[in-house]
């Protein structure tokens, strides 16, 4: 009962936040983006023990797939992306929205399929090798796209501006991000209580033993990564329409920004927990916005210090620290007398 009130309250905050802080709609939307990428990173990194540094690949690919689908439904893609064209190419409102919705869903599906393919090749790697391997995939993808003229090369793609009322547009993107985030949360909350959740935890704890117990580990790993990739692809697609213009190296396949931020969020909040990535993303996003505003010139130093402090002193993140201090909050019963040391 108490719990359902808590969730209802959170949902209410989600729904009213953009109306209470109308000037911060874009930042709130970005916060949801961070929450989604952090939660999806934790699916493999926290729950399954596979630390990927390449999840940004799905973000960038999601952007491109969504954009290309929406353009391709109406225009010749190569011609649209030709920087030297002088013809104006427009979209009607109906074309814009159909393109956006089909594009975003298509982006999710495409990323899920690519995750299976890439996972098949990289899940043989363990530990740091998996991290570097996936990072390599993301970097290579960025460079390939940057040299592919049909998709605009280094010029990137400029999508049409949101048609119609601007405020409605901002709400549109906020609710797309928030909706994806809420859906993901509900999905993961359920998933982690199922046998599937237990199986991927088993892979994290001891993959050989899990295998010996009859768990088809590769199948579980691929499924988990594909599900994560689906959601990252979807938010990538939404970002493409929200940002309007994006280019491959700094925006889409931004390995050193969002690609690392999502890992930092999870570490900050606590790996392998449902709430950790969310708390981490909120903390990180707030700290980032504040330092970028008030410590201009020192923002990266502040961010570096935050990462160092987290890694050295709070390895388990906020959730880990809370679990240690207040185990009863998590339904862990501690018989204090029986722990003399």
């Amino acid at each position: 009962m108490k719990k359902s009130i808590f969730y209802a309250l959170l949902l209410a905050i989600t729904l009213v936040a953009p109306f209470v802080f109308p000037d911060f709609r874009t930042q709130l939307a970005t916060l949801w983006l961070m929450i989604v990428v952090a939660m999806t990173w934790d699916m493999t990194g926290g729950q399954m023990g596979y630390n990927s540094l390449g999840n940004i690949f799905f973000y960038g690919t999601g952007m491109y797939v969504a954009a290309l689908i929406s353009i391709g439904l109406v225009h010749d893609v190569g011609f649209y992306n030709n920087a030297a064209r002088s013809e104006l190419m427009t979209f009607t409102d109906a074309q814009y929205f159909t393109g956006a919705i089909v594009g975003i869903i298509g982006a999710g599906l495409f990323c899920a399929i690519t995750a299976v393919v890439i996972g098949y090749l990289t899940f043989g790697l363990r530990g740091p090798y998996f991290a570097i391997g996936t990072l390599g995939v993301a970097i290579a993808a960025g460079e390939l796209v940057a040299n592919w003229d049909w998709v605009g090369g280094g010029q990137g793609i400029a999508l049409p501006v949101y048609p119609g009322n601007l405020d409605v547009g901002k709400l549109f993107f906020y609710f797309l991000f928030a909706g994806t985030g809420v859906a993901l949360f509900i999905f993961l909350k359920w998933l982690y209580t199922t046998r599937f959740g237990a199986a991927i935890n088993a892979i994290r704890d001891d993959e050989e033993k899990a295998e010996a117990m009859g768990i088809h580990t590769l199948r579980y790993k691929l499924t988990t990564w594909a599900m994560a990739a689906f959601f990252v692809g979807v938010v990538g697609g939404i970002s493409a329409f929200q940002l309007i213009h994006f280019e491959p190296l700094e925006t889409a396949y931004q390995t050193i920004n969002l690609g690392i931020f999502m890992v930092v969020c999870v570490l900050l909040g606590g790996k392998g927990t449902l709430w950790g990535p969310i708390i981490g993303a909120i903390l990180f996003h707030v700290i980032k916005e504040v330092t970028w505003n008030y410590l201009l010139g020192w923002q990266w130093v502040a961010l570096g210090a935050l990462i160092v402090i987290t890694v050295v002193y709070f390895q388990d993140g906020v959730m880990g620290w809370l679990m240690h201090k207040k185990p009863e909050w998590f339904g862990i019963r501690v018989e204090r007398k029986e722990a003399p040391q």
Partner: peptide, 16 residues
Amino acid sequence: SKGDRGATLAERLIDQ
């Protein structure tokens, strides 16, 4: 020197 950052900041200049 990053596009997405520039877009966010432009929104902030206008909104906030």
